[in-house]
Write a protein that binds this DNA or RNA. Structure first.
Lengths: 347, 347
DNA sequence: ATGAAAGCGCTAACAC
DNA sequence: GTGTTAGCGCTTTCAT
């Protein structure tokens, strides 16, 4: 006989009830901590014992069907292989699982359309709520879901398409700290390679760059900024070549660590040394960024904490309805390593 | 009114049936491709139209309750933040989602006990099958699940506790290639820092090391091998210090890339240069291993393909019962980079 | 070709 | 304190 999916038939609540000599309803009450008080202590014991003996596990589908709650939460990430996202997922998962929720991860592969499909698929699975780490500034899928009342919290990236609880980190302060560091070292010709402007992180960091550069009195020439098409090593390299073809920065502020890695590659390719000829600053502080050559100076973002906070927000929503306070911005920290130094000629 | 979990009430099959002017049973048949032939074409059209109009999404819990199939698969990984595992998950997810399955990821945090809990939790969720990437050689939880007939496929790590379909990569050939490379360069005093022996990868690679070393005529002194307590940078560093205290290897073969990174750190700490003084070889070829200083020579393991193959095996099991062929071993490839060179004195 | 009805395993409203 | 009953949304016999 072929193994039935799920394996050996599981004991059902009725089995437990029969073995304990009570009715299924009573068994249900005995097993549920919330309703356990309505049942005699002796019965509780008997039922518990029977359940243990039969290795009873409540069927969450049946329960969900009845209670209209699945205790499942969907988490949508653009790319699980991007070291940025696993910590977010783990931070969220820890909080959620502690509250009895199971996490379903969907990977959109950085594809806008697949985000919509993922949301739809997860909703079809009757998840109780959604954590979205893949939002773009203009995000139809998120807007639709929010309009339809789906409990949904954004993490890492914001959107302008909907008023929805969001947990991000402080891009402005991150950029400010990075720039302050570079300016203090004596840099004035600072190149900027922001991420795509259709993502909130790309735009906000680019804005912050302009703002703080003019405040700090650095050069703000248009040819010192080249937008990257994606947050990737390759796109970073492409942008770095363009930048170095049209300007002579003594330092480059990269939109994120991947872009910074691309910059490092291009510098090597052109015979430029880092940090002697050009300083480089990344963003995020992914794993192993301290092992690069030179170790990357970068802005550390508390990804796990962001995931955890977003999960908390979602749990609160699930428990008490939509939260009022809508945006949580976590502080970041500049980690100075070997990729930044005083400029050659002293600026 | 508080938003109901899951958002706006979803249209139900009955709603669709009513709108199409048919019975729910008929609507069900019309919507299911398999039973669609039993229904008049006109009805199919009407029902489909009604479904579209109401944005009908079948409730997978209700369906699952009836059919005893959830189209969910659990994937258990030891640590999602370890860059090794996301590719495995993605490879699996791609195959599974194409077949209509949803993936639930559980992270055991490298904790044996939590593996058992994860399996239990996933089974309580009535997943149709399990992909386990966290197995240890002696794995009670896996043994139990298999005995109970749970469709379960191992990936990346084997177990000796149960006869269960497994997809791994060719550890012996990987070690052989690495050793051949080192021996050809002229190394004879080759240190080995295997991963923990309670994991199949740790043991198999250690065995392969001994086997091929004696075949290739290298030194096989006990003080040249130090087992790492875990697959981590820290454990690698600890083991490397021990190794360098008790022997003078001209090359070190690390149990995996994290361990190799630890070795690189310790070499730097002791003023030894890589590869001039000591060559280092890693294992896995995780992201960014080509960006280390020096770029790491390592054995590339096809993680995504392993995940995909494991998923295939599981799907076949789900469709046709337990597969006969039980172990699939994928080929690996040595990637030579800058961390290996001829030894100082010529060996 | 379609309607009727039973029931998956569970919970909750209602008896007693 | 416990049994009874109904029903969550769906599939699937069984009639017709």
């Amino acid at each position: 006989m072929a193994a039935r999916p799920g394996g050996t038939r599981h004991a059902t609540l009725k089995d437990v009830a029969e073995r304990a000599g009570v009715h299924a309803g009573t068994a249900s009450r005995a097993l549920n901590p919330a309703t356990q008080g309505l049942v005699s202590e002796a019965t509780v014991r008997a039922v518990r014992e029977a359940a243990k003996a039969l290795d009873y596990r409540p069927n969450s589908m049946a329960r969900g069907l009845k209670t209209n709650k699945t205790f499942m939460v969907g988490v949508i990430v653009p790319d699980l292989s991007n070291p940025l996202f696993p910590p977010i997922v783990r931070g969220a998962e820890e909080v959620l699982s502690r509250a009895g929720y199971t996490t379903i991860i969907a990977d959109t592969d950085n594809d806008r359309e697949r985000e919509g499909e993922s949301i739809a698929a997860l909703r079809a699975r009757q998840v109780d709520g959604l954590l979205v780490a893949s939002a773009s500034r203009d995000d139809e899928a998120v807007r639709t879901a929010v309009e339809q009342g789906v409990p949904l919290v954004l993490v890492n990236r914001r959107t302008e398409s909907a008023n929805v609880p969001t947990v991000t980190s402080d891009d402005r302060s991150g950029i400010e700290k990075a720039l302050e560091h570079l300016v203090r070292l004596g840099h004035t010709a600072i190149g900027h390679l922001p991420g795509p402007a259709h993502l909130s992180t790309g735009l906000e960091r680019a804005r912050a760059f302009r703002h703080h550069m003019s405040e700090l009195g650095g050069t703000l020439a248009p040819e010192l900024t080249v937008e990257c098409s994606t947050y990737s090593v390759d796109a970073g390299a492409v942008a770095a070549r363009t930048l170095l073809d049209q300007a002579e920065p003594t330092a480059i502020l990269a939109g994120n660590d991947q872009i910074a890695v691309g910059v490092l590659d291009v510098l090597r390719e052109r015979g430029l040394r880092c940090p002697e000829d050009v300083s480089v600053v990344g963003y995020n502080d992914m794993t192993f960024m301290d092992k690069l050559s030179p170790p990357l100076t970068t802005v550390r973002v508390p990804h796990a904490a962001m995931g955890a906070e977003a999960a908390q927000l979602l749990l609160r929503w699930l428990a008490e309805g939509p939260p009022a306070a809508n945006v949580l911005t976590l502080p970041v920290e500049l980690v100075v390593r070997g990729s930044t130094a005083r400029p050659r000629a002293g600026g």
